[in-house]
Each structure stands twice: as structure tokens, then as C-alpha cells.
Design a binder for these strands. Sequence first.
DNA 1: TATTATTTTGCAAAAAAATGCAAAAAAAAG
DNA 2: CTTTTTTTTGCATTTTTTTGCAAAATAATA
Lengths: 249, 249
Amino acid sequence: MIKEERQRLIIEKLNRDQKINLLELSQLLNVSYDSIRRDVIELEDKGLLKKVHGGAVANTYLSFKNPQNYGADQQEVVTLIRKVQKLFDNHKTILMDGGTTNFHIAEQLPRNLEMTVITNSLPLAAVLNEYPKIETILLGGTYHKRYQITIGNQVMKQLEHIRVDLYLMGFNGLHPEVGVTLRHYEESVLKQKMAQAAKKVAICAITEKLHNVETYKVCDLQDIDILVTSLKPSDIELNGFRQLGVELL
Amino acid sequence: MIKEERQRLIIEKLNRDQKINLLELSQLLNVSYDSIRRDVIELEDKGLLKKVHGGAVANTYLSFKNPQNYGADQQEVVTLIRKVQKLFDNHKTILMDGGTTNFHIAEQLPRNLEMTVITNSLPLAAVLNEYPKIETILLGGTYHKRYQITIGNQVMKQLEHIRVDLYLMGFNGLHPEVGVTLRHYEESVLKQKMAQAAKKVAICAITEKLHNVETYKVCDLQDIDILVTSLKPSDIELNGFRQLGVELL
DNA sequence: TATTATTTTGCAAAAAAATGCAAAAAAAAG
DNA sequence: CTTTTTTTTGCATTTTTTTGCAAAATAATA
């Protein structure tokens, strides 16, 4: 039996039962436990299921997260998330702001990652709650209802006393000459401050946002240390982005 | 049976019965008492239920949204909430901490109330989000997963720069001689600080909490300006609570 | 207060996961 | 059709997680 067929059967069974048991499945399909386990790892990497001790469950199992409609570029988002995960390391402290990209990333982290996340996003704090070994620090301030983040002077002040290993910056537009841009002024100021509080700044861009320009500028491309995209570093789309000091992933 | 399957069955049974018994459940699922107990702890950490002695009940944050689930003291809670609403006025700034009581109060406010609420509770911020004219300020700090509040030094520091009209204090025990008490040390210290930041301090007590004493003391009864109960001010139960400076509602 | 039930804690056995390795199978190259 | 290279697979070993148990601490109840 070829791998693809096995994986198809796994997904089918998962859809029927909402859960699978590795041992049971290996006996049923008459292959070694390890093969099934490796299949499940692959399927998890593709974002098709969630691996748990002893088996796997559907992605939405026991979770209040509404099934994500990644939309057309689901595959791109999955690729992106896999790449950006390399930036997460045990014992690091990472600053993450709001936005859907960061939210998706936070949903897909390794279950036992041991680190500290500082954020001004309430949905992010809620997601991070699921990870037993992640310590979450929330930046306090005026609560922005629409974006579900805290903003304002108080957030700025707290940032002055913070120094993190990495800032994963959310944004709206990224252009080789203009730099990183945002649709909202207050956020753009906040993000500048956040960048100052970090040793390194990374941004994670879906292709759609490349070459896009919005109203308010956060910083130049040169101020970004790491740019994560789903493209190969040699891709034509990235012409102009290959600059001194910007690491392409 | 994998852990996730068990946990799902627990949640399902909980949704059906509104409460579960650990012993009963361990026999039903044929696993040790400890496993079930550990499952319940995990589920509580995820905010999916509330652990009680010998079992668990549906999470009040969620279940109270469903009026059917108010349980025995539904009527009392409704009376209380109606009374406490008199403390909320347009153009006031109120400090509210976590706890189910404050959560219920926040759920029932007049639609167009125009005021500012400062809080360290994430569920509270989420609820207040529904009111178009309430400005919410979130106190930032270390996120306590179980209670879904921020705690620690950072919260304390922010409180130093804050002065509010009223602090609606959540608590565990209230006794005429001992004063206001709490089950957790860190929270008790925080509440002291919060009380200092307010012109007036109010507490809202269901009868169950009257005469109750917990481990950590927050303040004396004299430090409370307003005590809201569902009882008449002349009620025998309130003997000892009628003290100089404490206004009974 | 005594008594019972429940929770907490530490511990050891069992189950499962991760890792490294080598044989087998498949694919690619010549 | 071989040979080489890559991928897949199963197995043994180590590490981690889960589980059940028992003693001690704590909470509820009579």
C-alpha cells in the first residue's frame, strides 16, 4: 500500500470518527506503528489534522475556534506558517501584535513550546492560553473594540521597559522602496515603538501584501531583519527585497 | 481510549447534565479516578468547565449566557444585578476586576451606557466590547490562564497612575469582623492596590458569600463604601454589616 | 470534634513519541 | 537493464508523557 493511499484513509477515518488511534490504525492497515505515526506527522504539517498523544483529532476538535476560512490561499498560509515556526525557539521572548497572520501562526505552534509571548492582542492571548508552557504577558491600554487590541499611551509606556528577542510585526503593505505601511495611524506609531523594543524584527508576508502600499509608514525595509514569505528567496517577485540586512526565508 | 476522546466525552456529558461527578465518570469510562481528575483540570485550564469539589460544572462564563442555567440562585443574581446597576452612571470611570459576579453584571448593563471601564479581566473586556459607548481600558501584565486575568507587578504599576470613581471589587468571603477575604494571595494584594486607586469601593455579595471567610485578607469592612446585597438593609443576615461608612443597598 | 470524602503530591510502571540506523523499495540516471 | 540515488519502512534505543497507586494534606459533613 502506498503512502498516499494510507494518508487518504487516515483522513477519511478522521472525518468519520473525529479521532483516530495510532495503534488501532496500524493494525487495521497492517503497517508498522511508525509508518502511521510518520503519516500523521506529515498530515499535521499540511494542517489537515492535529496530532495528540496516542493518535490524532480533527483540527476543530474541542476547540472554540471557528473553523478557519483561510480562503483561496490556504496552502500559502500553511507554507508560511511552517517557515515562520523556525523563528520560535524555546526560552525566547517574542513580541507579537494583532492581525490575522499572527493569529494563524499562534494557532499552529508546537504544543510544548516553552517561551514567553508579549502581546497587545486579546484573541492572541486567548489562543496562547492553549499552550501549557507559553507564558503570556498582555500589554495594557485602551481597548480597541474592532481590532481587539490595546493601544495608546499606556501600551507605549510599558514597551519602554521591555526588551525582547524578536518582534513579529503584522502589517498591511510592504514595498521595496516605501517600506512597511499600515492603514491606521495609531497602530503604525505603536509598531515603531514595538520595533525599538526588539533585538530583531521579523515580518511574515503573504504574496498579496508584497508591493502593496498603504497610508501610514512604519519603517523602511532596511529596518526589518527577517522577511518570511512563501516564495523561494530567488523568486522574481522578491526583486527589490533582497537588501543588505534583510534575511529572506 | 485517547485522552482527547475522554475529554470530549466529559464535555458532552457536561453539556447534557450541567454537572459531572468524577467517581461516576471514571467508572463509566473505565479509567482511574486520577485520569478523569487530571482531564478535568486540563479542561478547566482551557476554560471549558469549572471544577468543583468532587466533580465539575459547566463554565459559568458560557453557561450563564443561557438563562436556563442560572440554577438555584438565578433569582438572587437577577435582583443583585438590578440593584448594582444604580452604581453605573454616564461619564463615570469604574474599575472592575475578574470573577463571575462582575462578569454577569457587565452582561446586563444598559445598552447605551456611556462610561469608561478599567479592568484586568479578559472575559470582561470581551463582554464590554458589545457596548458601543463604553470605553474599555485593559490593565496589562502576566496573563493568568486559569482565571483569565492579568496579574503581577506591571498591573500594580499601572494602577499607580490611575484614579477612578468607583471600584467594583470581586471577592470570595465577607465577614463583619474579618472583612473581605480571598482564596488567592496574589489577587488579594492586587485588590488592595485597586482599592487605593478608587474614590469609592463597592462590593456585590450573593448571600452565600456573607459570613464566609477565606485565607487572604484584602481589607476591613470599614474600607468598603458600598455593600450591595439582594437582601433588605434591615435583614437579620446583615447584622454586623451595618457599620459606620458602609452604605447598604 | 471525629469521620468521611476529596484533593494533592510524589513515585513507578506502562504507553507512546522521538531518534538514529540499516534494510528494502522505488525512482532516477546512466 | 544496471547502477546509483533517494525515499520509505521497520526496528531498537532513548526520552517523554500518561497513567494508576498510595500516602499525606485538605475540605466537607455529621
